[in-house]
Design a binder for these strands. Structure first.
Lengths: 124, 124
DNA sequence: CCGTATCCGCCTTGATACTG
DNA sequence: CAGTATCAAGGCGGATACGG
């Protein structure tokens, strides 16, 4: 999302949430970490996201205090992520959003179809 | 948000939700409409958003079936928006997100400060 | 009062290549 | 295995101006 032209509205809870969690994969990352998938490689395989993008979002989550990053100083690099309490506090919300999405998948699918048709008609 | 390079994931409820409602003002619009603010002018005053942007998001909400648009055919233009059942089904989620944001406003605020400091140091 | 066409700025995501 | 630098593209939000 793009919204930096107008000052961030900390007065609105909705915007607080969006500012903090609007990355494309952030909620999924939190969810999967809570699910026990803690290592970068595994996360990446799970959601097939570009490494750079994933790291960026992960770093923001760390900076904002949603997850902790733990480096094991072994010979081969080993990293694990862990939810903080703040991150954990999001799980109920994530579940709710996820379920709403499951229940209304059809809406998105028909919206995509409409778009496709419209695109196809554009030249006319 | 920007995500059209990779096909939309209808398999993930989280993404269904995001695709449909990631506009900067959509959730707020739905909330305010549910709150009885139904006319474009009033909504615009309420959230101080650009007319074009608001209309775009409103139109998408209409297309996706979250709200209905009603035109009164009086001499002076008069429009009202109304939530559909689908739109209403989002209210509990919106409330939850809003409250989470209220409770964690401090997180965003300190995140903004960090950013400001970092920006200030950039030239060095 | 309402809507939309046009122009602009830039942030976000994504691909690739390289380093530790 | 993990992380980052660099490059590129595209969408979105915002401002303005005009038409109904």
């Amino acid at each position: 999302m793009y919204k930096k032209k107008i000052p961030i509205r900390t007065d609105c809870g909705l915007h607080v949430f969006k500012e903090l969690l609007d990355g494309k994969w952030k909620l999924m990352l939190i969810y999967y970490i809570s699910d026990g998938i803690k290592r970068p490689g595994a996360l990446q395989k799970k959601i097939s996201v570009d490494r750079r993008v994933m790291n960026k979002q992960l770093n923001e989550l760390v900076q904002h205090g949603f997850v902790d990053k733990i480096s094991f100083d072994s010979k081969i690099p080993k990293i694990e992520y862990m939810l903080t309490d703040l991150g954990t506090s999001l799980l109920p919300l994530i579940i709710s959003l996820e379920q709403w999405g499951e229940n209304n998948r059809a809406v998105l699918e028909s919206a995509i179809e409409d778009k496709t048709e419209r695109t196809a008609n554009t030249p006319a």
